[in-house]
Amino acid sequence: MSITTSQYVGNVRDTVKSFWHGMSVTLSQVLRRPITIQYPDRLEIPVQDVLPPRYRGFLEVDTDICTGCQACERACPISCIQIEVEKDPANPKQRVVTQFDIDEAKCMFCGLCVEPCPTGSIQHTREFEATQRSVRNLVFRWADPIKPFPVYKVVKGAPYIPRAPLGSRVKDLLAQRSWDAVGTSYLPPEPLKPPPPPPVKPPPAAKPAAPAAAKPAAAPAPAPAPAVQPDEPKP
C-alpha cells in the first residue's frame, strides 16, 4: 500500500494532466453543434431525408414495372405478401394482378422480397410513419380488384427499366388515409364478382384441394380460399 515519493508526485501530476485534458474535451463538446434531431416537429429537413439511403422502411411496389412473377411472395418468410394474378377477361393474352397486398403490420423488414424481384419493382423506402387506429389499415393494397393492373413485360435489350421515384407511391398511398380511418372487417378484399367458370372445375380436384385449403387457412384470413381454388388445378 505504501508508495514512494515519486509515485505520490506522479499521482498528483497525472490527476492534474487528466483533469486538464478531460475538461478541455468536454468544453469543446459544449462549443459544438448538438447532433440531436428534434423529431417530429422541429426538423430542418424531413426526417426521411436524414435516414440512410438503404433504410428499410415500408415496402413500395411500382405497379408499372411489376411482372407478376410472385417471386417476392415466395421469398417472404412470414407470408405477409399476397398476390393474385389472373387473365384479363377482356384480353385473354394479358395477365393482370388483381391483388397485391402487403401487410406492413406483419412485415419484419428483412428485405428478402427485394432481392428476387427481376425489375426492382418492390423496394424498401425510407417512409415509416403510418400510425393507424386500426391495425388492418396497415395492409397496403397495391392492386385494385376492380381495376387490376397489367403485368409488365421486360423489353429485351432495354438499357434500363424505368421506375417511379422511390417513395413517391408510398407517399401517395399514405396521403390517402387518415390515421383514424375505420378498419376493414376482413383482410383481403373479396372479389366483387366471383369468376363464373372455376366452380365447375373443383369437383375433380376436390381431393387435393382439401389439404391445400388447410394451408392458406394459416394465412391471415379464410377469405382467400375461393380465390385460391382456381389456381390450384393449374400447376
Partner: peptide, 22 residues
Amino acid sequence: RFLQQTRKNVSLIAHERVDLSN
C-alpha cells in the same frame, strides 16, 4: 493555453467548428 487546447479539440474532428446553434 487551455482555450487553445480546447480549440484544437474542436477542430480535431473534420468539418467541426464552434457552432452554438440548434
